[in-house]
């Protein structure tokens, strides 16, 4: 994950710029009100503190209609101004939906506890957890959930939106500067809700097109050379440790053998890899897993060592995650990791 999180006040799209400007303006007004109240209170404390020995009663004033009307109208006027601004800025920060039947660019599907991204226009492919967007282009998004309520929130790119199982929601997002953006599932979705992070990679159009073209095809690593002839892996002795250390990963794992391990285990009950028999849609699509930078919706960076730990016992890393652990032997694990990391 990027080392720095995105602040609401660091906008990268016109929509967020509008929200940020309005927020700052409101806080300035609010600060004015706070200063006024604090000032009056402090003045009261200093000026009207009872002096020692003074046991008389002050003048008994029970009200002043003119003043009272004034401080009813004052906040009312302020609220009215803020609401006019709200009306103006609402349209900018969440531009109106165009035609009702407009095809969204991307469909974002919330799952416990990862994100599925379906690209509907640029090649019709599915990926997970890492969203790539073309810089400077406004994208129309549809949000759906396969299980419970989630919330998709990348503060720098667009508004927060509920991801509901009961209804489809729509909005626009945009990124104007190439780079990486951070976000998270905003709505509590049970279990390891904390590890349902969002990573957005904003790329110039040409780079994005290349990426999308690659994603649309099956990965070259999906069927590594020699896969047909690779021997059915003999079971190797499982390691004794709860999580394997980096040393147990052997250099030069055999991707062809790794593919057999992947297809021969229950991995295929949940995961899909295009170009192979694995076509399940329960868990994240792994077709180009090796090109992604994160594992487990942001819980770890994608390195061979981390991947081995993850496969070995994901419950230790992300307690509650729906994936079971696979206590493979050193050789099998090395081969499987080599295969998965080769899915570029």
């Amino acid at each position: 994950m990027p080392p720095v999180s995105g602040s609401v006040f660091d906008p990268d799209s016109p929509q967020v710029k509008a929200m940020s400007d309005l927020f700052i303006l409101s806080l300035v007004i609010g600060l004015g009100v706070l200063m006024l109240v604090t000032g009056l209170v402090i003045w009261n404390i200093i000026r009207y503190r009872r002096r020692p020995g003074d046991n008389t009663e002050p003048t008994q004033t029970a009200g002043n209609t003119r003043l009272e009307v004034m401080w009813t109208i004052g906040p009312f006027a302020l609220a009215t101004i803020l609401m006019v601004l709200t009306l103006i800025y609402m349209g900018i920060s969440d531009p109106p939906k165009t035609a009702a039947d407009q095809q969204p660019d991307i469909e974002i599907v919330g799952h416990q506890w990862w994100w599925e991204y379906r690209y509907l226009k640029d090649g019709n492919f599915t990926t997970a957890n890492e969203l790539h967007v073309p810089t400077g282009k406004r994208l129309y998004i549809r949000y759906l959930s396969s299980d419970v309520l989630h919330g998709w929130w990348v503060p720098q790119l667009g508004r927060q939106m509920d991801v509901s199982p009961a209804r489809d929601n729509y909005t626009w997002i945009q990124s104007d500067t190439p780079g990486q953006y951070y976000g998270a599932c905003a709505f509590y979705c049970g279990g390891p809700h904390a590890w349902m992070l969002i990573k957005v990679v904003s790329q110039p159009q040409a780079q994005y097109d290349a990426w999308a073209a690659n994603q649309s095809k099956a990965s070259q690593g999906a069927n590594p050379p020699g896969a047909e002839s690779a021997a059915v892996p003999a079971p190797t002795a499982p390691a004794n440790t709860v999580t394997p250390s980096a040393q147990t990963l052997k250099a030069g794992g055999d991707p062809a053998r790794g593919q057999k391990i992947f297809l021969g285990n229950t991995c295929i009950n949940c995961h899909a890899i295009n170009g192979t028999n694995a076509q399940a849609k329960v868990g994240p699509n792994l077709s180009h897993f090796g090109a992604r930078s994160i594992i487990g919706a942001g819980v770890m960076n994608n390195t061979p060592e981390n991947l081995a730990k993850w496969i070995y016992n994901p419950q230790v890393i992300k307690p509650g995650v729906l994936m079971p652990g696979y206590q493979l032997g050193d050789q099998d694990m090395s081969d499987l990791v080599a295969y998965l990391e080769g899915l570029k």
Partner: peptide, 13 residues
Amino acid sequence: TFAIVPIDWQTHN
């Protein structure tokens, strides 16, 4: 600031 809808869209949750 939560009544100001666009700000709520950023700070909700």
